[in-house]
């Protein structure tokens, strides 16, 4: 894991979030949600700091972060792409869409392009099964995608 040096502002912000939850161990998940909302991801240094604040081991926090798929230790791209691999999208060919995104961007699932613009992730069902196969770029939903359209979708965010 890459070492991240936290600046004083960030340290204070994380301490404030922990304090707002009474520095209680039982609030760990809520604290992690809030910190991830603020910083985008949860690198090791952040986890260590949280552990210290709520008086549990860093291993305990690491255990929680790695258990839940919502938490991530890697920064996402500026335009995170999420391809739905829920059952409805899968049977309507979302794997092909995912492959095409991977091929066009030259990255794998969970990775970010070198320029930091795009990252690819999978998700399971956004509830828009009527539009299957579905992919999201940021919060924008693209439905009934064909492999041909993948290039155009990426181009929308290129500049």
């Amino acid at each position: 894991m890459a070492k991240v040096k936290l600046d004083d502002n960030k340290i204070q912000k994380i301490k404030d979030i922990c304090a707002a939850h009474g520095n209680k161990a039982g609030e760990a998940i809520n604290i992690l949600h809030e910190v991830q909302n603020t910083f985008g991801y949860l690198p090791a240094e952040v986890q260590e700091l949280i552990a210290e604040q709520i008086h549990v081991s860093a291993a305990h926090i690491y255990g929680i972060v790695t258990f839940y798929s919502f938490f991530t230790m890697l920064p996402k791209g500026e335009h995170p792409i999420s391809v739905c691999l829920g059952t409805a999208c899968y049977v309507r060919g979302s794997e092909k869409i995912l492959d095409e995104f991977k091929r066009q961007l030259g990255i794998n699932i969970g990775e970010t392009t070198p320029d930091g613009k795009f990252s690819i992730n999978c998700l399971r069902c956004v509830g828009a099964c009527g539009l299957a196969p579905v992919a999201l770029v940021g919060d924008k939903v693209y439905g009934r995608i064909t492999t041909d359209q993948v290039k155009d979708i990426i181009a929308e965010y290129q500049n």
Partner: peptide, 14 residues
């Protein structure tokens, strides 16, 4: 005399 209130707890994908 009946009291009842509700709080939200967030899951994180499991």
């Amino acid at each position: 005399g009946f009291n009842f209130d509700i709080e939200l707890r967030y899951g994180a994908g499991a």
